[in-house]
Simulated scan of single mutants.
Amino acid sequence: MEPIYQFATPQSIKNQKAEQSNQTAKEQQPDAQHTCNKAACERQHKGASTLLTLALVLLCSVALQTAALAQTAMVFDGGKKSAKENKSDVAIRSLDDITFPAADFKRGAYLKLRTVYLHVPVSKFKLKPFPANSSAETRAELDFLLYLQKTRNAEAINRTETMAAVYYDPLTTNPTDADYTRNLNSLFYIGRDLGLWFNPEKLPVTAQVLQHVIQDATYYIFSLKNDYNRPRPYQLDSRLENLEAPGHASYPSGHSSTSHVHAYILGHIFPEYQDHFLGVASDMAFSRETRGVHYPSDSEAGKEFARQFVHELMKSPKFRTDLEAMKAEIARVRAANQLTKK
């Protein structure tokens, strides 16, 4: 008995079984009756084989077409999903590709400053990377800045205007420069509550030491800004109405960094007032957020940089010597300006 083909149709199976039954019946008849013409038998066998072959080809063809349609449907559906994902990915990628525009960077000279006390690589200062532009953290920061923008009034704006002018430019060293006095006085802002005597005229040694300190800090701050190249908040959200447009990247905050450097140094001289100095520095940092030009994480990074910077500063023999001279001058001038008790 011949085997039934795996891909035979129901009809071909029925025909084959009928043929097998006929063959059995013929075998039970006398030899003379079931002897057939050789040519006729070959044609009969060839016809049956052809039918089975055609059935097999047809079934294979249907199976291949079904598989092809399924594959096509899968690719089409996947393509639609991929297109959606790609569109979202492109949007996120585009947002994360935004950096501070190189054409707007106006402080390239700071990257070439010579340091006085510190001679360590920029990589010495370890700041954690800022949140990605597309992250939930950055979105929360932007929403906070929008809230500050909504709630700031004229008084707050005027206050931040005053604080915006408190910064020291190491390149403004000519006494005849119109900005020289403002520039030098900025070095004494954090400690101004110590008294009217705390000023560059009465404390020339202190002024010189602080000039050197902030020159060093400025080099490292702007090197870090250049490395991180974080865009300003208003470059990510057009709803932010920034009150100024600084010519350098956002991270870390320069105002926060230098203010906290002053606070840590003055806190070393007046440990009893350290919390006060740090509070003034925090106010300075917050004013930059109110103005819409810094994220809160920029302010935190500035404080962390200042902590590490002063820690390194204390390792410098030259700074330690100058710090002692600064402390002696401050003690002398402070004592001379104290009210006498009667």
Rank of each mutant, 00 (worst) to 15 (best):
Y167Q: 14
Y168P: 10
Y168A: 06
D169S: 10
D169A: 07
D169R: 01
D169K: 02
P170Q: 02
P170K: 03
T172F: 09
T172S: 10
T172P: 14
T172R: 08
T173N: 15
T173Y: 12
T173C: 13
T173K: 15
N174S: 11
N174H: 13
N174F: 13
P175M: 15
P175C: 15
P175Q: 12
P175V: 12
P175E: 10
P175F: 13
T176D: 14
T176R: 15
T176F: 13
D177W: 13
D177F: 09
A178T: 09
A178Y: 05
A178H: 15
A178R: 10
A178N: 08
D179I: 11
D179G: 09
D179Q: 14
D179M: 14
D179V: 11
Y180T: 14
Y180K: 08
Y180I: 15
Y180E: 11
T181V: 13
T181K: 08
R182A: 07
R182M: 14
R182W: 11
R182V: 06
N183Y: 06
N183V: 11
N183F: 13
L184E: 07
L184Q: 12
N185C: 12
N185P: 13
N185F: 11
N185T: 10
N185S: 15
L187G: 01
F188G: 00
F188N: 05
F188P: 03
Y189D: 04
I190L: 03
I190M: 08
G191Y: 02
G191V: 00
G191S: 03
G191H: 01
G191W: 00
R192P: 08
R192V: 09
R192S: 12
D193Q: 13
D193R: 08
D193G: 09
D193Y: 05
L194A: 06
L194V: 06
L194I: 00
G195C: 06
G195Q: 04
L196V: 10
L196A: 14
W197P: 01
W197H: 05
W197M: 06
W197Q: 01
F198M: 08
F198T: 00
F198C: 02
F198Q: 01
N199S: 10
N199Q: 12
N199H: 04
N199F: 06
N199M: 04
P200I: 00
P200Q: 02
E201C: 13
E201Y: 11
E201D: 10
E201T: 08
E201N: 11
E201I: 14
E201G: 12
E201A: 03
K202A: 01
K202R: 02
K202Y: 03
K202M: 02
L203Y: 00
L203R: 03
P204Q: 03
P204V: 03
V205E: 02
V205C: 03
V205D: 01
T206W: 00
A207D: 03
Q208P: 12
Q208R: 07
L210D: 00
L210E: 05
L210N: 05
Q211F: 07
Q211E: 04
Q211K: 02
